[in-house]
Design a binder for these strands. Structure first.
Lengths: 200, 200
DNA sequence: GCCTCTAGTAAACAACTGTTGACTTCAAAA
DNA sequence: TTTTGAAGTCAACAGTTGTTTACTAGAGGC
């Protein structure tokens, strides 16, 4: 081997990059194993950096967890945009049925994790709130609308279903659900979305 | 006070009762906080008994967790019986919308908790499997039926939705969903069940 | 070249974890 | 009453946890 490595010059001592490595490793661990079952040494080892850097860059384990949540929230907002969601049940169903590796399901599982910290709870609640409102808007909901709570409730049932599906698929190897492809899942999910968000 | 207590003579040193106290306390803790975030000392304090008795009666923390799962599974089977579920979407919806304090939602949240132990995973999977099969039977599914996987998949989506709803209601204070009464929840859930399990 | 600021390291810390073994105490059998 | 076995207590254990502190080493400005 001549130089090894890829094209990138092996610039060491890159704080921003190290921070990113820690954040990515933490998101994976927290999503897969939960907050309490994950140790800071696990995360540091995955990232290939020293444990003490977690305290340096994120103040504490809880600080790192909050950073994971906001990072996830930001990426989710960036992907789906601020605009109302795609209007067709088909598109919504496809988003829920999408790959667990990234996309909505993956983020939802992380969003369901809890550290017991109040700050983290507020972040989580903020995203769930705004996402369910955008989902309700598909069915004709608007902030001050009459019968608003009913539409919002139905949107949140859709969101809960998405979360439950993501959880059952990744955490248990349940029946045909865990092995189902996106194409398998879209038809039933389209029915589900239509039944709950039909604007009639 | 003359005798205090109820009719039962205050028989102390009751192994069976102590075991029950530990099991009940553990179920509550594991359901609320998860496996890793719960310590054996928490459980023992809640039950008002000594920590060492956990090792004595359940061999280990994981043994206690498995006992919680099987206890929950047993109680669930006892409640819903072996017979096929109530056939009407209304009844199924009502079961999902029921109180989180006990009933199906409460057990589902515990069922979603994980200890990383293989034995526990098998117990969990067993119940989810059998329950989704009974749910699929409502829509006409039977063990060797054609297009069987599709019906089973739809039933598991219903189950996942129930789990997600229970989780969002108890772990986050989300919007109208967390405060919704059974009466609020039944209509949208009836629509959900009908859309997914209609046997046409 | 040297200096300095910061990224990264290593080791230790105190607190907490699940678990164990020797001990005490009660209640029923003899 | 004495004996005996099980129910419950106590204290300590070895390992792990998150965090901090003192330290080393590399990169850019002079």
């Amino acid at each position: 081997m001549t130089t090894g490595e890829t094209a990138t010059p092996p610039r060491r001592r890159d704080a921003a990059k190290t921070r990113r490595l820690l954040l990515d490793a933490a998101i994976q661990r927290f999503t897969r194993d939960g907050y309490a079952a994950t140790t800071v040494r696990d995360i540091a080892d995955d990232a290939g950096v020293n444990v003490a850097l977690i305290s340096r860059y994120f103040r504490s384990k809880e600080g790192l967890f909050e950073a994971c949540l906001t990072s996830s929230v930001d990426e989710l907002r960036r992907n789906t945009g601020e605009a109302p969601l795609s209007r067709t049940p088909e598109a919504i169903a496809r988003q829920i049925a999408g790959p667990c590796a990234d996309g909505l399901p993956y983020h939802l599982v992380l969003l369901l994790r809890s550290s017991g910290d109040e700050g983290a709870d507020r972040i989580r609640l903020g995203l769930l709130q705004s996402y369910s409102e955008r989902l309700a808007a598909v069915a004709g909901w608007s902030p001050g609308s009459p019968e608003g709570d009913d539409l919002l409730l139905r949107a949140q049932v859709v969101l809960a279903a998405a979360a439950g599906i993501a959880l059952l698929r990744t955490k248990t190897g349940l029946g045909p659900l865990a092995q189902a492809t996106e194409e398998d899942l879209v038809p039933p999910l389209r029915d589900l979305v239509e039944a709950l968000l039909k604007n009639d």
